[in-house]
Amino acid sequence: MKTSHFAVISLAAALLGAPALAADKVSFKDPTGDDNGPGTYKYPTDTVYKRGSFDLTDFTFEKKGTKADVTLGFNTTLEDAWKMGSGFSVQMAFIFIDTDGKEGSGSTEGLPGLNVKFAPAYGWEKVIVISPQASGRVKAEVGNKAGAAKDNVLVPTRVKGSGRKVNATVDLAGLEGEPSQWRFQVVVQSNEGFPAGSDLLTRRVNEFEGQHRFGGGNDGDCDPHAIDVLAGEGKGEASEVKAQQDMLSFECAEDGTAKKAATLTMVGGATKPAAQEQKPEQK
């Protein structure tokens, strides 16, 4: 009985290279064409909101010491139509992170303007806000509107859009451990320079779409203002479209408040071995 020379080399490479990468970097995919929230949402009518502008295709989080690089992929080429200076204008995203995976730990409330909750088993400890707005504006909005959650909101030190990707660098203040053990949710919204009420730079969803308003929702305050989210196992499979729609489904009371709020889960967090034991090849 002999062991294949190729198998030995492959196993050695996996053992040497996989652990650090598996621990510090995670990637997820999302189906294309599901940028309609619970299945009914429609884009604003202004031409600046191109088809695919809010269609998340992939998400990568890589920890590098005390910082992390975050990458979001979208289903269209980014444009800086409003001259934000960051390479994109209309996209915005919130990356919620559950670091301990414990039910009853963390917050189950979304940030103001999203109108989403999280299931009890998916409470979040930190959230990263990805916006084309200047970091000073974002921090001011967080300080004024995020309430008790403001200390758990991370604003990137660098945000840049190019091609179909938005890349950001964030200081990992208060985030310790291995990303491979964390759970994530990415909520895609639209950058709003003149947000309503206490909304955190988010664009509202109404019953009917308008020049700068999403349609297909409700004019009250009961519908989720989320255009795309990660769902299922984050593999980009067709079944994840239905999973997203189920999470973002909602019911409104007569007074416009939520009778049933959209409730999100997360992806990731499963422990995966660095390398599988390979059986020797027999000859």
Rank of each mutant, 00 (worst) to 15 (best):
G65L: 02
T66V: 08
K67V: 01
D69P: 00
D69Y: 03
D69F: 01
D69L: 08
D69C: 01
V70I: 15
V70K: 00
V70G: 03
L72W: 06
L72R: 01
G73V: 13
F74T: 07
F74Q: 02
N75S: 13
N75C: 11
N75R: 08
N75Q: 11
T76W: 06
T76P: 08
T76F: 13
T77G: 15
L78M: 13
L78T: 07
E79I: 13
E79F: 11
E79T: 15
E79P: 02
E79C: 06
A81I: 13
K83R: 14
K83W: 13
K83F: 13
K83I: 12
G85D: 14
G85R: 09
S86T: 15
G87Q: 05
F88N: 04
S89A: 14
V90E: 14
V90G: 05
A93K: 06
A93Y: 07
F94V: 12
F94G: 06
I95S: 09
I95G: 10
F96W: 14
F96Y: 15
F96T: 06
I97K: 04
T99F: 08
G101M: 04
G101S: 08
G101R: 02
K102L: 14
E103G: 04
E103Q: 14
G104V: 04
S105W: 02
G106K: 00
G106N: 02
G106T: 03
G106E: 01
S107H: 05
S107E: 06
S107A: 14
S107R: 08
E109F: 10
G110H: 00
L111H: 01
L111K: 03
L114I: 11
N115Q: 14
K117M: 12
F118P: 01
F118S: 05
F118M: 12
F118R: 04
A119R: 13
P120C: 10
P120G: 06
P120E: 10
A121C: 07
Y122R: 04
Y122V: 00
G123W: 04
W124K: 06
W124E: 05
W124Q: 02
E125V: 04
K126H: 09
V127Q: 00
V127W: 00
V129T: 03
V129S: 00
V129D: 00
I130R: 01
S131P: 00
S131Q: 04
S131D: 07
P132W: 08
P132R: 09
Q133C: 11
Q133N: 13
A134I: 10
S135G: 09
S135N: 12
G136Q: 12
K139Q: 15
A140V: 07
A140G: 08
E141Y: 04
V142E: 05
V142H: 04
V142I: 13
G143V: 07
G143D: 14
G143H: 03
G143I: 05
G143L: 07
N144S: 15
N144H: 07
K145Q: 12
K145S: 10
A146P: 00
A146L: 11
